[in-house]
Design a protein around this nucleic acid. Structure first.
Length: 259
DNA sequence: ATGGCTACAGCATGTAGA
């Protein structure tokens, strides 16, 4: 089973890039972030001829938004992260597929909105931790894929790419990410590439050519899935195309279709 | 450290992204 995560920075603008990615990478399931459209505006019809069905969780105002595309059967179990009923932001979708629960997330950036914006990010990470703990406590094969907006360590950003006060690298942010790992979730890319500088995001402008990037898109795997981890890689082809997203896809291969 | 990009709402710039 091949899983992918791709922050497309507008589903409508990036539909051609996404089509090319589906055709070349052949993922079974793809988790998308930053749709930047309403649910009914998601270009689902652009992918049906390639064999993919989809479920979009959009948002009014052209912000956020997550979706799942699949060429294998899946059922949507959640379209909001539990814990704050008033939180209307479209940042979470969870599906059941191939005997596992798979979550696609768009974790808050935390740099806007001042102290409250950062507090929201940390609360969101704690809500995610509580949900992940439930899944692990019940021994449900579980994975979280998406844009975490966290550089877990200094290896995960180009030197001096961000100031130490940035919400992506602040100590509380990194501690909250480690708290997820301490539950027993495995950072799939680091499990197989412990010391490589690999990035999934490059700012618009000269950053991609200079490889001045960040690793902020991740896949965290429960033990049942981590034990079957076959390959993990970053596909930089979509970032090299014209008018790309600022992110590029992360791919994970789990060795069996049955888990 | 941003906004020098980019996308979006909506029609002039403001907000957000990271």
């Amino acid at each position: 089973m091949r899983l992918a995560s791709f922050n497309v920075n507008s589903a409508r603008k990036r539909a051609p890039h996404l089509r090319a990615f589906l055709q070349s990478a052949q993922p079974d399931l793809v988790f998308l972030q930053e749709l930047k459209c309403k649910t009914e505006e998601f270009p689902a019809g652009e992918f049906t001829d390639l064999g993919y069905t989809s479920h979009a969780v959009g948002q009014h105002g052209g912000r956020n938004g997550v979706a799942v595309l699949g060429r294998i059967p899946f059922a949507v179990v959640l379209d909001r992260l539990p814990g704050e009923p008033e939180d209307e932001q479209a940042r979470y979708v969870e599906i059941a597929a191939a005997g596992a629960r798979l979550a696609g997330i768009y974790l808050p950036n935390g740099n806007s909105g001042g102290a409250e914006g950062y507090a929201y990010k940390l609360r969101w990470m704690e809500r995610l931790r509580l949900l992940a703990r439930e899944r692990l406590d019940s021994f449900t094969p579980f994975a979280i894929l998406g844009d975490f907006n966290v550089c877990p360590t200094e290896l995960d950003l180009a030197p001096r790419a961000l100031p130490p006060t940035d919400a992506l690298v602040r100590p509380e942010t990194r501690a909250a990410f480690r708290a997820l790992e301490h539950l027993g979730l495995t950072d799939a890319l680091r499990a197989l590439h412990p010391a490589e500088r690999l990035y999934t995001y490059w700012d618009y402008g000269p950053a991609f050519e200079a490889n001045r990037g960040l690793r902020i898109d991740h896949a965290l795997l429960s033990p049942e899935l981590a034990e079957r981890l076959g390959r993990v890689w970053v596909d930089t082809a979509p970032r090299s195309q014209e008018q790309p997203s600022d992110h590029t896809p992360l791919l994970v291969e789990i060795d069996t279709g049955r888990v």
